[in-house]
Design a binder for these strands. Structure first.
Lengths: 233, 233
DNA sequence: GTCAAATTAGACAGTATTGTCTAAACCGTC
DNA sequence: GACGGTTTAGACAATACTGTCTAATTTGAC
């Protein structure tokens, strides 16, 4: 199979891999309800750590199996080959990230009592549950490292991940502008700048090679929102 | 040799690798002045592309040799082993990036006639010659992918790279604030937010998987500076 | 307890990679 | 043209990894 084709297959399966295979895939899966579903999670977890640490090429199936306390063959039973395993890991993390994003997006202040405080809380939620947690780090690292090699794998996610955040927040900012709470010309630009400001200190930490603490996330959010409101308040 | 030790050795050599080895290293180097210095550059260039594309583990010496139109043995003659080659590549790119940064930093507006325009031009220079060029992409990708594996390799650079930018621009912002051209409480924070705003649209492009065009870099700078001045002008 | 499915350890072939070594070819200088 | 250093192609051993296969064992459901 040509590489591009394979990438597309992985991508198309990435989001479906949490349901259970049948004769169609030729793979044998644990039945739902079975307690051995845990094995799948253990494998995915160990694989995520390995891929994040060593990249796709650097991660070895043997090591993943050892880290998951599982035999190598079990991995091949569940996930045909390394690329399928990679696709499953990425797909699972994207799903989890999207679920988290959905939850957070609904908490964007609509009719704010105290706009600064509510925007800050929103930014803190975003930082703690998306930008700075393990899944966020994984996606950032893997998209940067393997994004060009598996374009279809990440293209789908962009639509329902970042793009959705931007358009949703853009709408809400536009509404706040209409209500007079903010002074915004271009809501799409304002979203990008809001997120950039809120992440400014977090990227600072990232460049310095350390993951920010909870306190640092909170301060980053406060700082970002304050400046955002100085510009658009 | 233990891994940590080796990493330190690579780091300590990374910035010195552009001068010419002697009996001390046991490696045979081309004499300065010799036209065959070109080989070294060709190798470094091909290696940079390969490491950036495939990561440290994924890049193969054979492929690098082929891409550089050089025999594998020549690479081993110049750079003992893969890790040394990696260190040399990273070191060269850091040096080049630092040189570019130094030049750009001196162009930060001191006594601006038109602050917005001059800040925008500064931001454009930064985008075109650092953030968005090949070296910038390389460093971003490699620091994220291999930063944890070779901490010493990047630690030195942080001091004379990003940290220097932050402190220099911070000083200059503080001076502009003192002169009344800006209204800034915390210049260190203002630097981070300035850079975040100016890079907001560029990261947007990056997340969408495409490198920004010149026009996009210019727009990003304009947008970022305008908002920065709305907040601090 | 029985049975089917899942898991395991290990052998195994095939392939890729790193790093060394050698002998021949090459190149610039004198 | 002779010479020293450089480059080259290729053979080579050592190692690592992927993916398959098998036979034995364990596990969960009934």
């Amino acid at each position: 199979m040509k590489h591009a084709d394979k990438s597309a297959v992985i991508a198309s399966r990435a989001f479906a891999c949490s349901d259970f295979g049948t004769a169609e895939t030729g793979l044998s899966f644990t039945r739902p309800g079975s307690g051995q579903c845990m094995k799948r999670d253990t494998i995915l977890d160990a694989a995520a750590r390995a891929f994040c640490r060593d990249g796709f090429a650097g991660a070895s199936i043997d090591l993943i199996a050892a880290e998951a306390s599982v035999s190598r063959q079990t991995i091949y039973n569940h996930y045909r080959d390394k690329e399928m395993l990679f696709g499953a890991v990425v797909g699972e993390i994207m799903e989890r990230m999207n679920a988290a994003l959905s939850g957070i997006l609904t908490t964007f202040p609509e009719k704010p009592d105290n706009l600064e405080q509510e925007l800050t809380l929103f930014a803190i939620r975003l930082g703690k549950n998306c930008t700075c947690n393990r899944d966020g780090e994984f996606l950032r690292k893997l998209i940067q490292a393997e994004g060009e090699r598996y374009p279809e794998l990440f293209a789908a996610w962009r639509e329902i991940g970042p793009a959705r955040v931007w358009s949703t927040v853009s709408d809400k900012l536009a509404r706040l502008a209409k209500s007079g709470a903010l002074d915004i010309d271009d809501p799409d630009l304002a979203v990008r700048q809001f997120l950039a400001l809120v992440n400014a200190d977090l990227q600072f930490c990232g460049l310095m090679g350390k993951t920010p603490t909870e306190k640092e996330i909170e301060n980053a959010a406060r700082n970002g929102v304050r400046t955002f409101l100085r510009a658009f308040g």
